[in-house]
Design a protein around this nucleic acid. Sequence first.
DNA 1: AGCCACAATGACAACGCTGTCAATTTTCTT
DNA 2: AAGAAAATTGACAGCGTTGTCATTGTGGCT
Lengths: 343, 343
Amino acid sequence: MKVTINDVAKLAGVSMKTVSRVINKEPSVRKKTYDLVMSAVNELNYQPNIAARNLAGTSSFAIGLVYDNPNAYYVIDMQNGVLSRCKEEGYELVIHPCSYLDANMQDEFKTMIKRSRLAGLVLTPPLSEQQNIIEMLDEMGVQYVRLLSGRDTDITERNNCILVNDFAAAYEITEHLLSLGHKNIAFVLGDKEHKSTSERLAGYHQALRDHNIEPSDKLIYEGSYSFESGVNGAKELLKDGNPNNITAILGGNDEVAAGALFAARLMNIDIPEELSITGFEDSPFSRQTWPKLTTAHQANDVISEHAARLLFSKARGSRKHDKDIITTFTPSLVVRESTGPAK
Amino acid sequence: MKVTINDVAKLAGVSMKTVSRVINKEPSVRKKTYDLVMSAVNELNYQPNIAARNLAGTSSFAIGLVYDNPNAYYVIDMQNGVLSRCKEEGYELVIHPCSYLDANMQDEFKTMIKRSRLAGLVLTPPLSEQQNIIEMLDEMGVQYVRLLSGRDTDITERNNCILVNDFAAAYEITEHLLSLGHKNIAFVLGDKEHKSTSERLAGYHQALRDHNIEPSDKLIYEGSYSFESGVNGAKELLKDGNPNNITAILGGNDEVAAGALFAARLMNIDIPEELSITGFEDSPFSRQTWPKLTTAHQANDVISEHAARLLFSKARGSRKHDKDIITTFTPSLVVRESTGPAK
DNA sequence: AGCCACAATGACAACGCTGTCAATTTTCTT
DNA sequence: AAGAAAATTGACAGCGTTGTCATTGTGGCT
């Protein structure tokens, strides 16, 4: 019933160590031997026992995915991307939702890493931005890859990071609105602590300036990445008869945009005739509002898959990058029905 | 740096086996010895090595969560519920998204179970309803708990199941609409293969009959659990000037209801003035539509936590249930703004 | 006190794999 | 074609636990 490496070795007529070499894709195994072993593996339908490998080996066959993000779509995409890579490599995935507000977080974190002897960690924002966590990991000697909002130029540790160019994406969205004739474009920001917020804001500013429009603080609402915040932001920006004559609102993400849409609905404002609204991320969500949201598509599953790739490549000890690991992603504009010409 | 069971044993002045007994909460350890060991554990901050336990022990310290569900909110809730129990018990969670349309699914499944020697599985709908999977698991001798849509009475294997009483919930929703004076209540069904669909339909039928209304097939749209389906369903039901004089639509779940809302918006139908719409599940989603959805609250995280509880209790070999494991849940009505008096 | 039954503890061999290092085979040199 | 170098393979000892079974300790009973 239970087939072990020894059974395979016996059938193939080699030592168990050679089988081990084959399943670990170590070099210096003759092609002929390799085939021999593989056919024995297939014949017996051998599955290496993860626990034994973890125990015997130097590092374990499991990586962790850490997130502190209320957005279910985002998390699921991240999981699926990492998971697909893990499956490929024969690793397990340990998911670790947590809250950086939680005082025990750091301890929990350590416990998890110690217990499972994780080979590495994929960190998603906003945890990936927290210096104290990075320091802890460095101290513990744990491998990790950070998913970070940023541009090509501003990161020194390129080896540990996958960048999402929110700046460029925000720039593109803003240009889209500008090209539709909008002049007074408001922005409902996400959480101020998140790097993506400042990056998106910077992209927006840059686009305005490049079109000779001076940004105004009156058009900025400092909120958070939530539906509620979108509602409140839009209400606030448009109150008292829209004194700033706003004709478009950038939502910090799709949820915020959906909230803004909601608020507009409450105020009897027609979208996009009277007001254009845009989102960010292109979650399924953005297709389930009325009207559907213009947004920036961000392939979270692809991004996280590359994060996992990078992690594995690091874990294997290769100093330089694989060529096929993409380390910078730029979300791209998706135009739908929530934006239209300025009135 | 790395502290093992031996270090603890040495410090406590007992054998390593006794430490093992303590951390596994085995009976027949003197209180005094127990305290002695525990203080050594705490002093050294000992964390048992999962891999070693898995390898040495009969069953492993990991359970699997299997799902084939496109609803991100649902999945996340399920994960979090199971995860919280796992943390409590010192188990790992292996998540396993899959598609039952995938021909390789069964194989993948087996592979996963074999590789990680899982102690058990939590199966969510619709996979939990598939007879061939259940049979395979029985054959493999794997423990499992099924999350199932059903009523108290119709399940024989009470030991393996956590029931969600969709019948009662649908009954309650339908009664709510009836009490608002609605007579022609339509229903956009979810996937026909899902048990929840037939249960919800049955509850709806029962409520109508109890109020002396004969159900009509003209008011039923056979769809699936998706936004798109909600859109199409509502369009279909209301087309040609709403010949059946429908004043309320039950959505198979919140996404369907959101889709119906979307369609109503396209057709310039005011909600809830001209048409009431209800959802199912109370996902965050249902609070992010305009207007917010009347729905049935289903605490997926609590449900899945109890599923995990049950699984652990089974894995420990206890024949009868713990008293504090709830095995039947009934979603409860949440009234929001998407329902109102019949016009 | 003496004996017994049973509770509590310990010694030691697995569990299934990988790391180390030594043995063997192949390939290359001259 | 011999000898050296390199490539390939194998023997064996852990990895850190738990299961088994033997040993010791404890309290109750006569």
